[in-house]
Amino acid sequence: MEAALPESARGGVAKPSSEADARRRRAFIYGLIAFLLVASLPFLPVNNYIIAAVVRALIFISLGQAWNVVAGIGGLLSLGHGVFLGIGCYTTGILFNQYGIPPWLGVWVGAVLSLLVALVMGSMTLRMRGVFFALATVAASLAMVQISRHFVDLTGGADGLALKFFGNSWWAAQSRTPAPFLYASLAFVTLYYWITRWILNSKLGLEMQAVRDDEVAAAAAGVAVFRTKMLGLLVSAAMTALAAGLYMQFYMAIDPEAAFGLSQAIQLQLPALIGGLGTAWGPIIGGAVMIFLSEVTNWGGTKIGVSGVDILVYGLMLLVVVLYAPKGIVGSVLRNAMKGADR
């Protein structure tokens, strides 16, 4: 297990000043307020549609945080992270529908399968420099689309897989209302935030950032480049597959395009890209902004009879971020406000 670095060896927290401490405290308090606000939604006069929208945001934040680990911290551009989402969803769904295995267990099988696929993908591509890893992830996505279409009996083919519905059931991890999913997804976001924070402050995190900045220099500093990339990919794949279990239980269905399609892969990347790559807060802020804008524009689009406006909004957001805030909201806009705080 990778050890956490001593304070004196870390960068941003090496010499904590009172100002940095104050900012860190402030960031923690804002986070706590947001957490409590979200947790209290079911007790406020808020309808289920709003709660469901928040759940969607939290699920995408979790998935975005998982992608952030490999791409933001590790610098490995995975364009086909939907592979791990799809494996998580399909495994949970197939085990439940066909074998009666509850999602509580099925999700771990999905995580193990994702780890195996990541191991194979990584073994083949991570020793190469350049775009090979990115291309391999796209190729894997395309292959998975075909595989999931081919095995109709298991996956439902092009029509997809719908979970058998048992109503409110702890055993089946199902609910008629979105409130239970709100707490589950909030737990995921909190856990993934702490995992990301831990990675950033650990020896593994330092190694991953070194490899991201310069592979040759990292090797010259003694970093085992291949091992570091592989560890980052495995952690991210497992995180994605576990969050996919929640995705499946909430949406109750999955199809090849929703799992492995390019638009899904892009959606997984948006929270971190918009919020700030390689930061723990980035995907949280990016995911919240993304879903909020998408819901508002969808609502506006419905009023004027135009559908699919959210995709257009995602594209525009990405364009604005690339042009005006390439380090994302946390990296560019909130840089000064969060300076010294653990981003």
Partner: peptide
């Protein structure tokens, strides 16, 4: 070729954390 996203301390910490013989203190070495 430095790690541009890291501070000077972190740049040195990366190598020190990989290569420091057992028993020596990382922070002190940095």
């Amino acid at each position: 070729r430095l790690f541009e996203s890291m501070t000077v301390r972190q740049n040195i910490s990366v190598a020190a954390s990989q290569c420091l013989p057992k028993g020596r203190d990382l922070g002190e070495e940095v």
